[in-house]
Design a protein around this nucleic acid. Sequence first.
DNA 1: GCACCTTATTGAACGTTGTTCACTAACCCT
DNA 2: AGGGTTAGTGAACAACGTTCAATAAGGTGC
Lengths: 199, 199
Amino acid sequence: MSRPQRVPRAELRQAILDSARGILDREGAPGLSARAIAREVGYTAASIYNVFGSMSDILMEVNRETFARLEQLFDSLPEAGTPAARLHLICQSYISFMRRNPALWSALFGGMRQRETFPAWYGEAVRGLMGRLTELLREHAPDLDGNRAMRLTEQLYVAVHGAVALEVDRRLDILTTQSAGEIAASVLDAMLSRLKPKG
Amino acid sequence: MSRPQRVPRAELRQAILDSARGILDREGAPGLSARAIAREVGYTAASIYNVFGSMSDILMEVNRETFARLEQLFDSLPEAGTPAARLHLICQSYISFMRRNPALWSALFGGMRQRETFPAWYGEAVRGLMGRLTELLREHAPDLDGNRAMRLTEQLYVAVHGAVALEVDRRLDILTTQSAGEIAASVLDAMLSRLKPKG
DNA sequence: GCACCTTATTGAACGTTGTTCACTAACCCT
DNA sequence: AGGGTTAGTGAACAACGTTCAATAAGGTGC
């Protein structure tokens, strides 16, 4: 193997992450391997381990980027309309993003097998996403207790997670003819209708 | 390797499945391998392939048994109480079963990586489980259209799936301090309250 | 009871995977 | 130019699912 040019560490690091994301996009999780990444960035598999401690670490960094993209996505949504409508829009955007990037999503939550502990920023990232939903929920029902709004948000997120998890793995159609989007919309409606009777 | 006694095919087949289920129980999905099963049943890995076409086929048969156990579980529940109470009970039993058998559950829905098509009986098994819920839903709200009841059931199942999927992989606590049971109960309540206002 | 045939079982192999490690080549600094 | 530090490599390990030619055992026909 001809040795590649020496390159700043940070650059190689990013090249590895870009390659990993690309492979996930193109071939899905099963195609992602240390050797595959190495081939793409022009190094050998062992070199990957000079930059990252493990394959799982690479996935985690990809996930960090995915969370950032999701936050961007949420923030780029139009701020017009009723809070309920905006909640629906966020849910559909989330689902649509995951549909477009199934492997990225699998990495997010189905990632590495039973990993002992998740990094702290993981929870913060999800809470960051959910915070936007909680805000809208309280806007929709102003007299809603903050803690209860958070719990409702979490329930919504978990329910949507179920739909996306099944759809991404092409298992949703075993259960139902409904799409993840339809399911999410219905669950959200059920929750909202309870807060504001006859909204 | 000393050759084992010749044994009726069906017996070996069942021994393999029992061993597979046992390994899943004891060591979880990562411990399940052709060689591990072979070691337990006193054969070599190659022999497993005289009985089953692939590891995935073995998992599928384990799943068939798991579905059967779930149906039994549902049918063994007391038939007393309001339909709403019985719906809650079924959900909690489902969750509790999955909590006790996390690896069996992972095999059910997280099983083998992107399997092209699922066997036909898979959908039937899930529909069988959901049918019991749909019945109760219609009992709870007698003037509920059959098709709509089915769609609601599917939404409920998917939402509960989300909670269990996260909890089984120890990821639920990243999102929330609520348990899968609490989330399922809340979602179910939200659905029910919509059907029978002030029920 | 012996030979034959069929079937079950095996060991070894292939190609993968993540990961480690001693070695070496490239760069930086004096 | 020479020495030291770092980065990259090839080869190896243990595991995985899976395949296959060779072999041992069982049942059958004579």
